[in-house]
């Protein structure tokens, strides 16, 4: 199972890197989304895949999974949700002002604004 997860995470990271290196702003944002998904899956895998064991300790349960990775992932998902939403708004505004979503056109420095 770990192997499948590792390959999946690798594929997600590859796709994310490809998208982030592209020129379109929207693709870049999708790329960052994939990157954080990969990171979340990585937390899940690194915390140990518990199988069917429940993430609680009680008297009848002898075999239990670590509940912490789930809490971490939830936190990380909320954060990446917020950041992605903010980035989308930003990208939209930048597109409205600059009339382009091509990163090459958005290079710019002080000399040629």
């Amino acid at each position: 199972m770990e192997l499948v997860m590792a390959i999946l995470i690798g594929v997600l990271f590859t796709a994310a890197v490809y998208l982030i290196l592209s020129r379109s702003l929207l693709k870049i944002i999708i790329g960052t989304g994939l990157l954080s998904h990969g990171a979340h899956l990585l937390i899940l895998t690194m915390g140990g895949l518990g199988g069917l064991a429940p993430p609680v300790i009680s008297k009848s349960v002898t075999d239990f999974a670590d509940p912490l990775p789930q809490a971490l992932i939830l936190t990380a998902i909320v954060i990446s949700f917020g950041v992605t939403a903010f980035m989308l708004v930003m990208a939209y505004r930048a597109y409205a002002v600059h009339k382009t979503d091509d990163m090459n056109q958005l290079k710019g420095n002080d000399e040629h604004d």
Binding site: T32, S36, G38, L68, V83
Partner: peptide
């Protein structure tokens, strides 16, 4: 991107 890397690092450390 650096935040994603931070999460990855924490996952390794954990």
């Amino acid at each position: 991107v650096s935040s994603a890397l931070f999460v990855i690092t924490i996952a390794y450390l954990y």
